[in-house]
């Protein structure tokens, strides 16, 4: 584990009301993730991977316990503060890419920078850099519908990385990709992890993804059952 803690959870519990009962999605989760880690949350469906990712990403709040991300206590953030944390420091990569179909590749990647209030010149330079990282400079003016699945996910990576966030949360990023594209995507992220020291946290049950992880945190029924570093 790296020396600087980026994420710290302490006795994290998350419950949801389901049909009048409380469903416990996370049970006393205690993990620390340091700067520059390339880690994976693994486990079967319903084990709490995505819930944990949501809480760490400040999209949800803990029911009890605490989660600290970049020295921000997630449970005490206002909506506005949580949005600012995501905007400035966290990138998201989704299973279904979630590119905005009416915008070009360039504009999709540019969007988070618009929210950050970057100037047009800065945006242009940063988007071009991001396109270069993922090898899609030639497709900047294309629409998502004109891209393959692998290319779309690379655009999603560029969008997550363009603002150079401290943390990237990737939820099943290769689930819709074939083996070749999956490896390509993971190599790209591995390269960015090494070059930019960005922390990556994956939620996955894909064996291919696990091969790339430096650390694997296994979840079962909302509990951490194994935490091993390669």
């Amino acid at each position: 584990m790296s020396e600087t803690k980026l994420i710290h959870t302490h006795d994290l519990v998350k419950t949801y009301p389901v049909a009048g009962c409380e469903f416990v999605a996370l049970k006393n989760v205690n993990i620390d993730i340091g700067k520059g880690e390339f880690s994976g949350l693994v486990g079967p469906s319903g084990s709490g991977k995505t819930t944990l990712l949501n809480v760490i990403g400040s999209l949800d709040i803990p029911t009890s316990g605490s989660v600290t991300v970049l020295d921000h206590n997630i449970g005490s953030l206002t909506h506005k503060q949580a949005a600012m944390l995501r905007n400035q420091h966290i990138g998201f990569i989704f299973q279904t890419y979630n590119l905005l179909p009416v915008y070009t590749v360039f504009e999709n990647i540019e969007f988070p920078l618009l929210l950050l209030g970057k100037s047009a010149d800065d945006r242009k330079k940063m988007v071009n850099d991001a396109l270069e990282w993922v090898g899609l400079s030639a497709k900047a003016d294309m629409r998502p519908a004109q891209l393959s699945g692998g290319e779309s996910q690379r655009v999603a990576i560029a969008r997550a990385m363009v603002k150079k966030p401290a943390l990237v949360l990737a939820d099943e990023p290769t689930a819709n990709l074939d083996a070749k594209n999956s490896h390509h995507i993971l190599e790209t992220m591995e390269k960015l992890n090494a070059e930019l020291q960005t922390t990556f946290l994956f939620a996955t049950h894909d064996e291919k993804v696990m091969q790339y992880m430096k650390r694997i945190i296994s979840l079962e029924d909302g509990k951490v059952v194994k935490d091993e570093t390669k």
Binding site: G57, L59, H79, K80, A83, M84, L85, R86, N87, Q88, I90, G91, F92, F94, N98, L100, F111, P112, L115, R159
Partner: peptide, 14 residues
């Protein structure tokens, strides 16, 4: 989907 994405990348609800 677009709204969820925009929230995820840090756009405020307001």
């Amino acid at each position: 989907g677009e709204m969820g994405l925009r929230l995820a990348v840090g756009e405020q609800k307001g």
